[in-house]
């Protein structure tokens, strides 16, 4: 295609938008709302992922051994723990280590090391990290079956809750994105269809003087895709702005729960390009499909 034809067809597309501005405006509004909802769902799901990761990193289970074991028995238990599938990290903590740790924590009140130096009440234990908190139940079962293991404690309740929240949130997000994508396609399809209908005579004449389908379609694609990109820009601004405000609020108003979940949302710097690129791609693809499906009927001359 010649550049002058290209420029002409782009101009025609933009002209159509202006001529059809009420409908164009309405459809861009709907698309913007769709994108904002999609963005909110994705950010929510990203944050849930980040929280689950954080909790996962905190996933430390403790395997308490029975009292009075020999060094060999302790080592053997350690080997057995390592052999359990799903266990990625095993650290031995001696009763003295535990005592020292507590002593550090309570140093201002009392000197535990001195008090218990000859009669340490703590058991030997292993700190265990698993690869996936979602599978922690069978792992704990395996661990408690090991010889000389007295009990196993896991911070699993919170993990389990968040893993199921994560699953649900992800499914809802996918569903929402699919529904909103469809809404976008339908809205664009209708907008372009209106322009096409207003120009159907013109399209017929163009076909009769030898215009190719591509030549006729091009301005409508310009119209559809431009409105998609404008919507993407508008919703990027809204979503990034609102998310930044939320991020600041969350950071400045810590709660017990928020501390437990890492204390911070995923920072805007790490997500904004996903948001912007996602919206642009969403606008581009949905508008492309919406436009393509709206013109076909009138091209058969």
């Amino acid at each position: 295609m010649r550049f002058s034809s290209f420029a002409y067809l782009v101009g025609q597309g933009l002209h159509n938008m202006r001529a059809n501005r009420l409908m164009t405006f309405a459809s861009m509004g709907v698309q913007t709302v769709c994108m904002i909802l999609v963005g909110a769902a994705l950010l929510f799901s990203m944050n849930i992922d980040a929280m689950v990761d954080y909790i996962g990193e905190q996933n430390e289970s403790y395997v308490y051994l029975v009292d009075g074991l020999s060094d060999e028995q302790i080592t053997a238990a350690g080997e057995a723990i390592k052999a359990v599938p799903g266990v990625v990290e095993v650290t031995y903590i001696s009763p003295t280590d535990v005592l020292t740790e507590f002593d550090d924590m309570l140093s201002s009140y009392t000197n535990l090391t001195d008090t218990f130096s000859s009669d340490n009440p703590f058991h030997s234990m292993y700190k265990v990290v698993v690869d996936d908190v979602a599978n922690i139940d069978p792992i704990i079962e395996d661990l408690s079956m090991i010889e000389n293991v007295e009990s196993v404690s896991a911070t699993r309740e919170l993990s389990k809750l968040f893993v199921s929240v994560q699953t649900v949130v992800n499914y809802i997000s996918y569903g929402l994105v699919a529904v909103l994508a469809l809404v976008s396609i339908v809205v664009i399809n209708n907008t372009i269809r209106l322009t096409v209908f207003a120009r159907r005579k013109e399209i017929g004449i163009m076909k009769l003087v030898g215009a190719t389908n591509g030549f006729i379609r091009f301005p409508f694609f310009v119209e559809g895709v431009t409105s998609g990109l404008i919507s993407a820009a508008a919703s990027s601004g809204v979503v990034c702005g609102a998310y930044y405000a939320l991020y600041r609020f969350y950071l400045e108003n810590p709660t017990t729960l928020s501390n437990l979940l890492g204390g911070t949302l995923v920072p805007l710097e790490e997500v904004w390009y996903y948001i912007v690129l996602g919206f642009v791609a969403f606008g581009f693809v949905m508008c492309g499909i919406g436009t393509a499906t709206s013109i076909r009927k009138h091209l058969n001359v």
């Binding site: 005579k201 013109e202 017929g204 004449i205 076909k207 009769l208 003087v209 030898g210 215009a211 190719t212 389908n213």
Partner: peptide, 21 residues
């Protein structure tokens, strides 16, 4: 179908009902 436009370009047509835009 794809070749139809190129065939039409070889003709110049004056329609009975003008068909101006």
């Amino acid at each position: 179908r794809r070749k139809v436009p190129y065939m039409r370009r070889q003709m110049g047509v004056v329609f009975q009902d003008f068909r101006l835009i």
